[in-house]
């Protein structure tokens, strides 16, 4: 980029640093146009057909109450899947997080390896995980639980090792100097500092997982997704509305509980 200079009346010369904003805007604009071509985006279709969306939305109301009886079982499956996956995932995340933290594990190689493991686990979208799991473990909640478990391990693991690495290691050293072993120093010096955040992260992850678990059934991994897929396929939108209502209420309730718990932890 060419540089312009400005000369002040008193003879001082300042090299102007030009704002990059126009350049960034231009690049974004070009990419938006390209992306609109690639995705066949058309405002005209949206204007002429957009009401279809609301037609379907309208068909969901009022929800078919008599369908409620068929919702409970998959709903419980969804809750079970996300609870089990989150709980086990959060537990397994702890040793992985500790092994990934450079200030606890002295070997750069070891911590680097575990960080890579967590990073790769996080990369694959959960739905792809669930899909693969259905091929290995068969259709059902087992596959969904596994997918949620893997996601939770990677998510809670990453946030926890970042938390450990940002800790002040003074306490740890002080306790070691008192004659505690590294493990004891960890238990009394590190754990109390990271516990609230760790629990809060785990709860947050559980909230998100519950939402996510609802779609895993779509690939046959159990839960609400199965009946959702079925009812959407039959275009029985009243029933879909019922499923969504139940899901929104459940997620809302669990979020409320979890948020109160998280606020108490802070």
């Amino acid at each position: 980029m060419r540089k312009r200079t400005l000369t002040l009346p008193n003879g001082k010369v300042v090299t102007e640093q030009r704002s990059k904003v126009p350049l960034i805007c231009a690049i974004l604009l070009v990419f938006i146009i390209v992306a609109m071509r690639v995705t066949h985006f058309s405002f005209r279709t949206l204007a002429t057909n957009g009401h279809q969306f609301f037609v379907i939305l309208g068909a969901m109301f009022p929800p078919h109450l008599d369908f409620l009886n068929r919702v409970w079982q998959p709903l419980f499956d969804t809750i079970k899947m996300s609870f089990l996956g989150s709980l086990l995932g959060a537990l397994v995340a702890v040793p992985l997080a500790v092994l990934s933290a450079t200030n606890i594990v002295k070997s750069k190689l070891l911590s680097g390896f575990f960080k890579l493991v967590l990073s790769i686990m996080r990369t694959l979208p959960t739905i792809v995980m669930a899909l693969i799991a259905t091929f290995i473990f068969g259709l059902g909640t087992m596959a969904g639980t596994l997918a949620i478990f893997i996601f939770t391990v990677s998510y809670v693991g990453k946030l926890t090792y970042e938390q450990i690495e940002s800790l002040d290691m003074g306490t740890f050293e002080a306790l070691e100097s008192l004659g505690l072993t590294r493990l004891q120093a960890f238990r009394y010096g590190i754990v109390p500092q990271i516990l609230p955040t760790y629990l809060s992260t785990s709860l947050f992850s559980f909230e998100g997982n519950l939402r996510y678990a609802a779609i895993l059934g779509y690939v046959g991994a159990g839960g609400l997704g199965i009946i959702l897929n079925e009812q959407l396929g039959w275009r029985d939108y009243g029933n879909v509305g019922m499923i969504l209502t139940v899901l929104i209420v459940t997620v809302g309730l669990i979020e409320l509980i979890s948020q109160t718990a998280r606020q108490k932890l802070q």
Binding site: L6, T7, L8, P9, N10, K12, V14, E16, Q17
Partner: peptide, 21 residues
Amino acid sequence: ATAKIAGLKALDNVGILDKAY
């Protein structure tokens, strides 16, 4: 540009011209 020069002049006046950007 005239505005920018006026601005830089004012910054020079209070001794922080080098922090302009």
